[in-house]
Write a protein that binds this DNA or RNA. Structure first.
Lengths: 140, 140
DNA sequence: CTTGACCTTCCAGTTAGTGGAAGCCCTAGA
DNA sequence: TCTAGGGCTTCCACTAACTGGAAGGTCAAG
């Protein structure tokens, strides 16, 4: 299979597949004309990578997951560990976004959004908030 | 004020402030020794930037917000528009993360996480899912 | 033989900084 | 007066995970 074929099969752009080779996630063979030649196993790996990335795993996570996948003697605990850490990162990110969202939604709501210059959004951004006092002189 | 002073006041790292100058968000003066000299207005801008960034606005959004902030004849609608678009991006991101989270939580839950190799997480990543069929030959 | 679709490599750009090196500047203390 | 420190300067490289584009080789069809 050439790169276009695995791209179609895996749903990944050819550019991305070349990049994955660059970072050592797949190691396709080369035919005499210099074209990459992908085996079934490579196509399978790429699909695995596509799904892992879709779940938000980092490239490094993917590398580890792939290694575990190929290791018959793995302990599922190792996989679960990676997944749980990722889950935690996701939860943190969601919490962060929700907080931004709440503040922003409140401000947007308060803004008339008309031709006049008065704007609670800008007013808020221009104002020091609680807990934002910086670097009070600790000594003296 | 030197950069260390505005850094303390705004809560931004000096590196970040230099970067903001690089991309044209602030234009501090220079004293004869080459040091950046920040006016009150610069310190104020930097605080504004810090708060905008904390709400997740991109640098380009910040640039536009700052311009609006300084424009006495702005229409609040323009500000609101930027904020609403950002809100939408946040909502999209939250939705995406929640979907990942749901899938991942389900898989983590199903995984024993012990010394055995059997792992529903890997099994899932290795399996083609509904709607994942690629590029069926449209012609013929 | 030419056209067009593939394929190759390499370079640059994206976001928003961060880390580090090499080297001034300035002040306080011995 | 010398020196040590902390602060300041610039510049270069690196991060994550690609993506776009240029220049050019390969191959099958007409």
């Amino acid at each position: 299979m050439n790169i276009g074929d695995v791209a179609a099969l895996s749903g990944l752009p050819a550019k991305t597949i070349r990049y994955y080779e660059d970072v050592g996630l797949v190691k396709p063979l080369r035919s005499t004309n210099g074209y990459r030649t992908f085996r079934e196993s490579d196509a399978h790996k790429l699909a695995f990578l596509g799904r892992s990335r879709a779940l938000g795993f980092s490239i490094e996570d993917c590398r580890n997951l792939l290694a575990l996948y190929e290791d018959e003697k793995r302990a599922s605990a190792e996989v679960k560990d990676i997944a749980e850490q990722h889950l935690e990162r996701i939860d943190d990110k969601i919490a962060e976004l929700k907080e931004m969202r709440a503040t922003l939604a409140h401000l947007v709501d308060a803004c008339a959004g008309d031709h006049r210059p008065d704007c609670p959004i800008l007013a808020d951004l221009a104002t020091k908030h609680r807990g934002e006092e910086q670097l009070k002189n600790t000594a003296l």
